[in-house]
Design a protein around this nucleic acid. Structure first.
Lengths: 245, 245
DNA sequence: ATTTATAAACGTAAAAAATACGTTTATCCT
DNA sequence: AGGATAAACGTATTTTTTACGTTTATAAAT
């Protein structure tokens, strides 16, 4: 049984979306299979076995393209899940075999997280034929395989990297307000921050660039828009090595 | 040709040693093979194909045990090297086949770095039958496969984690002096630091615990010994979330 | 017993960054 | 004109970081 898949290695993606209010996670409803008992979890992370000779990051991009229709989105490898018993559920393995037409023994999965700014257009573009849906990050159901564990690690990684790397901008519109930026930090980290001090810090950072543009069409004072300047960030990070012994 | 090895996945270890003066790296001289041309690199990172149903971290520990005789040393996964062409050198692949008795197609390797405090006893315990030797981190020869790249990534990772996590203590004796600690940072990061300010910062950290013991047998003023207190570190890190937008 | 070599230990003033905290301002809608 | 809504702003205090030279403890040599 020889297919285009490499039956030993897969990728799974923890896809984060942010709609300026809430952190969301993309999950796939498993295509219904005859022998699925009604009480079984049928929901999983987007993922795939890798294709022979495909690089892992290509596999991950392929998966994202398949479910979201999106190219060029932020993707970062964050872990490997390799427990020999991770595909213990026989029925799930059967499902996987049927899906891929490959004899499954041990599968090691490489986990990626990805970041998507959700505006209305993207929220609706999800591939419905694959039952891809956004879930609130705070209300995640039981998932197949070890996907709850992968998701949990993904969230930990997101939080760690959000406070040490300029990745948050991938979850915001290109032009964002300082309060939107603060909201992102508060939602993802689950904390409250002092608005005046947050603004002060943000304004002091050259790589958060104020534009001569303001929000429009609101029924209240419109906020100034800002954008992330990567060149300035590079300068900044080369001068500042933060440091804990 | 069925062996105990899983021929699709390997581990490679970047093993760092610190002797209070210099950062060292453990490399293996490839066992001489008949058909190796004299100008060929025969040096590589310690590594191995994984054994069927072995967890990856077990594989890495097995490799370290094999070459250093050491158990219980700090090991951390830091990357995956998956380029389909990474085993391009035919001769090297032949060598690998001979070593493992496994037909080699595409091999993905999972990279670990590990930290070893070098005192005289450990420096001499290296498994000589496998030609394991310590090299200065600043004078690394050309290595097989993509091992120079893996090593380079390993050093980057070490530097990043040294300034954000309490891993340096794995490279120092259990009881160390503040100047030894400073030396570690200076050597690994390649920078000079102000001694008075370094001491002040170190002394202010509760998790760097001063002992009532001093160095002995020196011909100069003996330094106070300190040890790392993990419990205090956990308290510290739970209170202090350092933060860059 | 004194000197010498070596590395450890120490303190302070100035600058920069972080924190705590309430009021005013711009826009749209009625 | 008034009301609702969210944006924008400043200052005093505390904490942290930085820059910078001298004294002290030990063993070895004389």
């Amino acid at each position: 049984m020889k297919t285009r898949f490499n039956p030993h290695i897969s990728v799974d993606c923890v896809v984060f979306g942010f709609d300026l209010n809430e952190l969301k996670i993309l999950l796939i409803n498993r295509d219904s299979v005859e022998d699925v008992k009604p009480d079984k979890n049928k929901i999983k992370l987007p993922g795939s076995l890798i294709i022979r000779f495909e690089e892992l990051h290509q596999s991950a991009h392929r998966v994202l393209q398949k479910y979201t229709g999106l190219d060029n989105i932020y993707l970062k490898q964050f872990g490997i899940f390799d427990s020999p018993g991770r595909l213990s559920d026989e029925e799930d393995v059967t499902w996987l075999k049927n899906q891929t037409n490959v004899e499954i023994q041990r599968v090691i999965t490489v986990a990626y997280y990805s970041l998507i700014r959700l505006d209305d257009s993207k929220t609706t573009k999800l591939s419905e034929s694959f039952n891809a849906k956004w879930y609130s990050a705070t209300e995640v159901p039981d998932l197949m395989f070890d996907h709850n564990k992968i998701l949990e690690e993904g969230i930990k990684t997101l939080r760690n990297e959000l406070i040490s790397q300029p990745i948050g901008f991938n979850l915001l519109p290109e032009k964002f307000t300082l309060n939107q930026l603060q909201q992102l930090y508060e939602v993802v980290l689950g904390v409250k921050m002092d608005n005046r001090n947050f603004r002060k810090r943000a304004i002091s950072l050259k790589y958060i660039e104020p534009l001569n543009e303001w929000q429009k069409g609101l029924s209240n004072k419109p906020a100034k828009l800002h954008s992330f300047n990567r060149d300035e960030y590079e300068k900044f990070i080369n001068k500042n090595t933060l440091f804990i012994i």
